[in-house]
Design a binder for these strands. Structure first.
Length: 529
RNA sequence: GCCGACAUAGCUCAACUGGUUAGAGCGAGGGAUUCAUAAGCCCUAGGUUGGUGGUUCGAGUCCACCUGUCGGCACCA
């Protein structure tokens, strides 16, 4: 089977922020997808990072008596350390202040200037001198053409700016979207973009007065490339090397939140189409697609600074220490706002999902199997030689679970993937109920049949653990350790790649292998009273 | 304000182009069990499908209006 390449990204996060559930969510979804594709055997590149060149970054630095770079270094480190601590498997970490990024962006913009798709123009708008920023016409009207901060009149100001010819590409982008060459999902977002694209105008891509923080427009050092253009290019700059270019050519999947869809679904593909026309950039192609999830709300309320109810690092750590990192991943992945509606991060809901899916279903089922194996077969996987009527369709269940799981994950349906694995585990519980091995075991003559039953249970659990690995890798690796399975080692030995399809074939569990008992994988959570 | 989507059992969601008694998971209630983390398994949900009016032999499924939620127009994962 030829190696497929898979390239997935998160947005690069605004470096002035402190990491919170939103950053963690997008990164977790990307991590699950990256792990899934590696498990499948794909050659994966997973990229996340921080966006550093905003004017407010240099403002924040100045307030603290730091250089923008020092301030950015500090904050970038917080993101980097957080993701490392949460065991994200990103292959690199973008920092837009790094030379490798800046040099490429400069080259791209130079090429676009040369081709004429970026041109010098004039921007005119209402300018707030005190804030040193433009306000939109509608805002200006709303404010009565006075600064909302100091009440001084806004001034009409004209300024030289560089523009990108978005207008000349809107048709090509729309065509690519309609043809499925560049997918915008969830589907409901597609129409939003197509409608807006029809009226898209050229967009300014530079500004002045940034005090040297940012990437200068080539040939015009007074102008700085707008931070969001700078940021969008990260997906390309970090793989624009001879070794990494194949990842780009495989087509990137840009995971984002809904608020930045316009940039990613309209401006970004248009920029790439423009760049592709430049000499030396013929290899540039459109992303495979962009996927825009919605937001988390907190305990039923929108998260906002004024309410101070962000699910922040302290709260995230509370969940990890109380329930485990995998439990948090499971909740985010299966209950998250992947669709067009927001999802609620609520403690009661977290506990419910944790107890139902992880403690009562997965953890308990594993305990039943390991306990019976130890009690009746001294902890050794028995042979499935004896016939058991109810076992006939059993291998099918695992096959179906794999098929459903694969279909879900390919469609970025993490809840569906979780449900497929849960279904397989529930079928084990059902099977134990139907065959009642614990009753049969009371008569030694039945032990061969008990052996077959327990073999099937353990075998199905083995497959379920493979399906669950992308979401709850650490607990699944614990299952593998207890069952003497070496998938983790095999993956490590092959550059992180697994063989999901082969490993999920029924009947690979070796009779005689040890199944160790141990502490509950997910202890049931009892709320303190 | 303008444009667009959606509004189904306590919660989260299903029901292809309109057609038999509107389904599932969670939660809740009941039952038979005991290998297991008082977990698992089985049974039970009678919700005027947001409201009003209309089209049709027949409408969650089409139309109009109303109410509400969300999204886009207006830089926040």
């Amino acid at each position: 089977m030829p190696t497929e390449r898979y390239y997935v990204t998160t947005p690069i996060y605004y470096v002035n922020d402190r990491p919170h559930i939103g950053h963690l969510y997008t990164t977790t979804v990307a991590d699950v997808l990256a792990r899934y594709h590696r498990l499948k055997g794909d050659d994966v590149f997973f990229l996340t990072g921080v966006d550093e060149h905003a004017a407010k970054v240099s403002d924040a630095a100045a307030e603290r008596g730091l250089t923008p770079q020092q301030w950015a270094d500090q904050n970038a480190a917080v993101f980097q350390e957080t993701f490392a601590r949460l065991q994200m498997t990103n292959n690199d970490f973008v920092r837009t202040s790094q030379e490798r990024h800046k040099a490429k962006v400069t080259a791209y913009v130079a090429a676009l200037l040369k081709s004429g798709d970026v041109y010098a123009g004039e921007y005119e708008g209402w300018y707030d001198a005190g804030q040193e920023e433009y306000v939109t016409d509608s805002k200006a009207q709303e404010y009565g053409f006075k600064s909302p901060i100091n009440g001084k009149p806004l001034v009409r100001k004209k300024e030289k700016n560089y523009f990108f010819k978005l207008e000349s590409y809107r048709e090509a982008v729309a065509t690519a979207i309609r043809a499925g060459e560049f997918s915008v999902r969830p589907e409901a977002r597609c129409n939003e973009i197509l409608n807006r694209l029809a009226e898209a105008k050229d967009v300014p891509i530079s500004r002045t007065g940034t005090g040297g923080w940012g990437i200068p427009v080539p040939g015009d050092p007074d102008q700085t490339i707008y931070v969001w253009i700078d940021a969008l290019f990260n997906y390309l700059t970090y793989v624009d090397t001879p070794e990494r270019r194949p990842y780009w050519e495989a087509g990137v999947t840009n995971l984002i939140a809904k608020d930045i869809l316009w940039f990613h679904a309209a401006i970004w593909p248009a920029l790439l189409l423009a760049l592709k026309k430049c000499p030396g950039y013929e290899w540039v192609r459109l992303p495979r697609g962009v996927y825009a999830h919605s937001f988390w709300i907190s305990e039923g309320q929108k998260m906002s600074k004024s309410l101070g109810n962000f699910v922040d690092l302290a709260r995230i750590d509370h969940y990890i220490s109380t329930f485990s990192l995998d439990a948090l991943r499971y909740f985010l992945a299966t209950q998250g706002p992947l669709g067009t509606t927001d999802a609620d991060f609520a403690e009661a809901k977290f506990i419910e999902v944790y107890n139902t899916d992880l403690a009562n279903t997965l953890g308990n089922c594993f305990s039943r199997i390991s306990n019976m194996t130890n009690r009746y077969f001294a902890g050794r996987v028995p042979s499935p030689a004896a016939a058991v009527a109810e076992s006939q369709p059993y291998g099918h269940g695992a096959e179906e679970a794999l098929a459903a799981f694969t279909k879900a994950l390919e469609g970025i349906d993490l809840a569906g993937g979780g449900a497929a694995a849960q279904g397989l585990i529930r079928s084990i519980d059902n099977y134990i109920e139907q065959t009642a091995p614990f009753k049969l075991a009371k008569d030694a003559a039945n032990l061969p049949r008990v052996g077959t039953i327990l073999y099937h249970c353990a075998e199905a659990m083995r497959i379920a653990s493979l399906l669950l690995w992308p979401v709850i890798p650490h607990k699944c690796e614990e299952i593998w350790r207890r069952m003497g399975l070496d998938y983790a080692q095999q993956m490590q030995a092959s550059a992180g790649r697994g063989q999901l399809a082969q490993w999920c074939q029924w009947g690979q569990l070796q009779p005689g292998a040890t199944i160790a008992q141990g502490d509950p994988l997910f202890p049931r959570y009892q709320a303190p009273k």
